[in-house]
């Protein structure tokens, strides 16, 4: 194989890394920053994809679907936080695991009732439908580049909000010592409800953006759930930079694993996680609690 082959694979790897970060971004906020174990992350991703499919069908425009879908996702997040998650902040993590696992079942049933069991697809919006020729017989879809751009925007936005703004400071403080922040006069309940909604909206947004390149089908969330946790754990909880590096690392290892060691392709990512956790038990950029 010549050099151009490996360059295209490198592009694939980086692009896959971006997609992984996008998919894991909502989980980074909830699990990585706030410490909530959210197994329903994949369900919110699925809700986003179905919203994109449904609203595109209704309105005829993918962009309008995102515009309408995001407030719906925020509202879903807010309701889930108010009526379920908010009762569990004081309790053991196991309760969150049980509750969010139950949410997976609830969302799966709701999805079946609302949208049935068909496999659906979303058409790529016209301005992004083209592709760029790469080699003599392969070309690269512009929409995939757009996903990368959206991912960079989200990564920068999250980093800026969490590290540089007053809101981010409150979030980080609230996550590490809830009572103290409350004593200082900050309405922690409102803050957490807001952040949780935001995390859900991010997961849904990832689902919406991925819908045109993926297919929309029942149970699609379960496929992204595990890889999202792997990304966050490798990067180290509490670090957006870590999540980003983790996603890129997995993108590289997974893509070149498939090319160079095809028999091992499906376990490479988990082997990488095991090695990193042996070397740095808190992940690449995680701090010991």
């Amino acid at each position: 194989m010549e050099l151009s082959f490996y360059l295209v694979q490198l592009l694939n790897a980086v692009q896959y890394g971006f997609l992984l970060f996008l998919v894991a971004s909502g989980l980074t906020l909830l699990f990585g920053i706030m410490g909530i174990i959210n197994l329903a992350h994949g369900s919110f991703y699925m809700v986003g994809a179905y919203l994109a499919y449904w609203l595109t069908d209704l309105t005829g425009s993918f962009w309008l679907a995102i515009l309408l879908g995001l407030p719906i996702a925020l509202m879903v997040g807010y309701l889930v936080e108010r009526f379920a998650i908010s009762f569990l902040y004081q309790r053991d993590h196991l309760y969150q695991v049980l509750l969010t696992f139950a949410l997976i079942l609830v969302f799966n049933e709701l999805q079946q009732i609302l949208w049935g069991t068909d496999v659906h697809g979303v058409v790529i919006p016209e301005i992004l439908a083209g592709s760029i020729p790469l080699t003599d017989n392969q070309s690269y879809p512009i929409y995939r580049l757009f996903i990368s751009a959206a991912c960079i925007a989200i990564a920068c936005g999250m980093y800026w909000v969490i590290q540089k703004t007053r809101l981010g400071m409150m979030i980080r403080a609230g996550a590490s010592n809830r009572e103290m922040v409350q004593a200082l006069g900050i309405d922690v309940n409102r803050l957490f409800a807001f952040v949780f909604s935001l995390g859900v909206a991010l997961a849904a947004f990832a689902g919406m953006l991925a819908a045109p390149v993926d297919s929309v089908y029942p149970g699609m969330g379960e496929n992204v759930l595990i890889i999202s946790f792997v990304v966050v754990v490798i990067g180290g909880t509490g670090s957006i930079k870590g999540t980003f590096v983790g996603a890129m690392l997995i993108g590289l290892v997974s893509t070149f694993g498939k090319v160079l060691l095809p028999e091992m392709a499906s376990i490479m990512v988990y082997a990488l996680m095991a090695v990193i956790l042996l070397w740095r038990p808190h992940g690449l950029f995680g701090r010991a609690a």
Binding site: V119, G121, S131, P133, N137, Q138, S139, Y140, P141, Y143, R144, V213, D214, S215, Y217, M220
Partner: peptide, 16 residues
Amino acid sequence: GGGAVKFVKDFAAAGL
């Protein structure tokens, strides 16, 4: 199923 949809779309998008 879902894998077939993805494969056929990816195959076409890659210009193959």
